[in-house]
Design a binder for these strands. Structure first.
Lengths: 342, 342
DNA sequence: ATTAGCAGTCAATACATTAGAGTGCTAATA
DNA sequence: TATTAGCACTCTAATGTATTGACTGCTAAT
């Protein structure tokens, strides 16, 4: 275990580095944190902290910089308490404010508010889409050749898409809707997916074959990863002082790779928050850290939200925001979920 | 008028600079374009072309670089003909392929395909939204507390949004729908906007007051600029060799400013294509050029599409793509527009 | 009008020098 | 034993100087 003085010094280095983003010297620590001890003493402490793996030295005659280990220690030991300011809570509440109920919109709003308040990049990945239950499907004629298909699910996810359909008389669509609900309502998206292969199109369904296929395609399109990953505030990396053109390019190439970003944000470990620091852990994003949270509704895991920022990010703020937004979503969706389809 | 040799030289400079993005020397032009004339001769020609304003010299002992004037001359005189390759046409067709009919989706697809094929940033700005005619409004109950509002318009624009509504019995929403259509159908969005101020909520409407307000809000939300500007491929600037971190930041700050980007893309001049080169014309985006096209449906102007790329961009390709995509959208929407609401 | 040839200009690169910040070590001190 | 002052050492960043090479502009000859 670290002596209390070592902890104080370590914390000082991390705090100062988070503020200023440049290496911290023994003298600076002495001035700002210690009256009773000289810079030389701090120097020896720094040296042993470096040996222990908590600090790094960009070059021999520079100050110290926190290592991933230091950040982890910092997060684990120094930031139990801090919470959001009232104006930030206000901003989050205002963003949601019950104005919409499509999950797409809620998630987009969440990603945006997380990024705006933290000033880092945020990512939300929806998971377990295969387990989503289809509550009902509606088909609304728009004109003679097109209709709007609306999918209503238990986790409130709604997708709607316009399809082309030959719908001269009204009863056709009604009949089709009844039939389609008979087939899909009550099933999960996973069911639909596995059943899709053994396309059991009975004789009685032949008249609706085309329509059925369109609906099927909409349901299957849920699968595509790109629909379940929302990113906001990517461009904020450009404002970090440590960002170069090269690192920005690298950052964007990782961020835009759906596979890798999804793996980065979705942590299988069964913990509420996870912290990834160091190039090895961040899928090649250099000098960045990723904080992710598991989002649940009624205790059911629905996805993960993450913040990608510089290693020296404001961890306490990030965690508070992730937590508060998660709770907000939960309460919005919980209410929604207690009701039934009419 | 420029002598034919001067034209040949000017064209050579632009062509080479488009390829390599670095200043062109007299020697290079002689080697690649002239057998019958020496570099010295070309040098004197280059010198006078510079005096005439067509060329620039980054410093005394460097080669020449085209000026905005040169690009303009180049576009006006040297690229009447070139058209898209078959695989590019194929790619554009495949993107649209009749899979969707929501205008949002069409426009997004258009922006994406333009950016993908040109490898530059594309922007589409929808205009004249106030003149869009509301053909009908549908309200679909989703469950006891929410409903989906669907707006159908003459230019095929559809927006749908979930609203909260207290809808115990089915007839309530039906009555509301009839009433709301009585009020809004046949009007333009501009009408709604001006009428909104003098909110004439009669006694008979009181029961539907809340619902009416929700619908009104959806209609009014069309107005917000952010909904009518679609940008794709912004990050491609990072790959231009002339891009620095500073210029990238500047680029993004202009691109993200809806007002300024809208002004940049929407050219009031009554021409099919417009070309903007030079910092003064591009609203502060340095070293970039903007090619914009007016998009029409049935001869009615619906918006503008633009490509933002380096000054040395492949103008012929850009213009061809803008033109082809414009025609494609036109034909999709034209068909759609001939039918009536059921 | 064209050209060869040459002097001149400038960016880019490499190299040397210096200043300053910060460390590590050592010997003295409490 | 823990702390400290002091000093030598290291390394970056800034600045200055020299060299190279790519071009041009100019001039005198063709």
């Amino acid at each position: 275990m670290l002596s209390s003085r070592k902890q104080k010094i370590l914390r000082a280095v991390v705090d100062e580095y988070i503020k200023g983003a440049s290496p911290i010297s023994s003298g600076e620590i002495k001035n700002k944190y210690f009256d009773d001890v000289s810079a030389a003493t701090i120097r020896t402490e720094l040296s042993t902290l470096e040996d222990m793996g908590y600090l790094l030295q960009p070059h021999t005659s520079s100050g110290r910089v926190p290592s991933p280990l230091a950040y982890r220690f910092y997060v684990d030991n120094f930031l139990h308490s801090k919470s959001l300011g009232p104006e930030e809570i206000e901003a989050i509440n205002a963003s949601f404010n019950n104005k919409f109920l499509k999950v797409e919109e809620i998630v987009k709003t969440a990603a945006k508010v997380i990024s705006d308040i933290t000033n880092y990049t945020s990512v939300i990945v929806l998971k377990n889409i295969n387990k989503v239950l289809i509550k009902g499907i509606k088909i609304i004629a728009l004109d003679n050749t097109s209709a709007l298909v609306i999918i209503i699910t238990d986790s409130g996810i709604i997708r709607d898409k316009v399809i082309l359909v030959n719908a001269e008389d009204e009863s056709f669509l009604n009949d089709a809707t009844v039939l389609i609900n008979k087939i899909f309502a009550g099933r999960t998206l996973g069911d639909v997916k596995t059943k899709a292969a053994s396309s059991r199109v009975d004789a009685e369904l032949n008249a609706f074959k085309e329509l059925l296929n369109s609906v099927m395609n909409i349901l299957l399109s849920y699968e595509e990863e790109e629909d379940s990953i929302i990113t906001e505030g990517e461009k904020k990396v450009l404002d970090y002082p440590e960002t170069s053109l090269e690192s920005a390019k690298n950052f964007f190439s990782v961020i835009d790779d759906k596979k890798s970003i999804s793996a980065l944000i979705c942590d299988d470990a069964d913990i509420e928050f996870s912290l990834k620091i160091g190039k090895a852990e961040t899928h090649g994003i250099d000098k960045c850290a990723v904080v992710t949270a598991k989002y649940t509704i009624n205790g059911k895991e629905i996805g993960h939200a993450g913040v990608i920022g510089p290693e020296r990010m404001d961890y306490s703020k990030v965690i508070s925001v992730l937590s508060y937004v998660g709770n907000t979503i939960n309460s919005i969706m919980e209410n929604k979920d207690e009701e039934d389809l009419d």
